[in-house]
Amino acid sequence: MLNGDDAAALFDAYRPRVYAYAVSRCGRRLTEDVISETFVVVWRRRDVTPAKPPLPWLLGVAHNVIRELRQAALDERSPVHQVTDTGSRPGPRPAGGPRRRSPCSPNAACPPSRRPGVPASRQEE
């Protein structure tokens, strides 16, 4: 089990290696977050921190932190996340933004198989 002095020594000894690992996996922008969260996990799980050698375990913790950060970023961008707790949808589409396109050009006649809104049974008429 780590005490405060052991945790500080662990941080001082292994921070550069964990930093290098984090930079190689997620770039400099998120590295400080990864380092901080990695050593917070070490402190929270100080009763299971391996005595020797701790580097593989620390890199595993950093790997999991990076995975969780990436998953959180993906979740924030997903359409499901855009629905708020109150059930309201996001605001209107910004002007000039992408529009949903019809399967046919507006100036051309749609072939029967591509007519939007027409039931399949009536498309052959």
Rank of each mutant, 00 (worst) to 15 (best):
R93D: 15
A73V: 03
D5M: 06
D5T: 14
R44C: 02
R93V: 09
G91T: 08
Q71W: 03
S24V: 03
V118T: 15
R93Q: 14
L10M: 11
G97S: 14
A13L: 07
D12H: 10
V41M: 02
V61Y: 00
T86E: 15
P103Q: 13
A20G: 10
G60E: 09
E125D: 13
D5Q: 14
V18Q: 06
R28M: 04
S24K: 11
N3A: 08
H63M: 04
R25F: 00
R67G: 02
G60R: 11
T38A: 03
D85W: 06
L59H: 08
R114N: 06
G91M: 03
S105W: 02
A95K: 10
C104W: 03
A9F: 00
A13E: 11
F11M: 08
F39Q: 08
V118G: 09
R17L: 07
S121R: 14
N107E: 15
L55G: 01
I66V: 13
V41P: 00
A20Q: 13
G27M: 07
R44M: 05
V41G: 01
T49C: 12
E32W: 01
V23R: 12
T86F: 04
L59W: 05
I66A: 04
G87E: 11
C104A: 13
R46D: 04
R67F: 01
R114T: 07
F39G: 06
Q123M: 08
A8R: 15
A22I: 03
R93M: 06
S105E: 14
R114P: 00
H63R: 15
V40W: 02
A109Y: 04
R15Q: 11
A7W: 04
N107I: 08
V41C: 01
E125R: 15
Y21H: 12
V41F: 01
P56R: 13
V80R: 11
E37K: 12
C104V: 10
A22Q: 07
V118S: 09
A22K: 05
G4M: 05
P103R: 13
P50K: 13
P119L: 12
D12T: 10
R122M: 05
D47S: 15
G27R: 09
A13Q: 13
D33Y: 03
A13D: 05
G91Y: 03
R28Q: 11
L55R: 02
S88Q: 15
P54S: 10
R89D: 10
P92G: 14
A73T: 10
E124Y: 02
K52N: 10
A9Y: 01
L69Q: 13
F11N: 05
I35R: 07
G117E: 09
P94H: 14
W43E: 08
T49M: 14
D5N: 12
W43N: 09
D75C: 04
P16M: 08
A7K: 06
V80D: 12
Y21C: 03
S121P: 00
P111A: 14
D6T: 07
A9D: 11
A95Y: 02
I35H: 04
V83N: 07
E32M: 09
P106C: 14
L59M: 09
A62Q: 07
A95M: 02
C110H: 09
K52H: 11
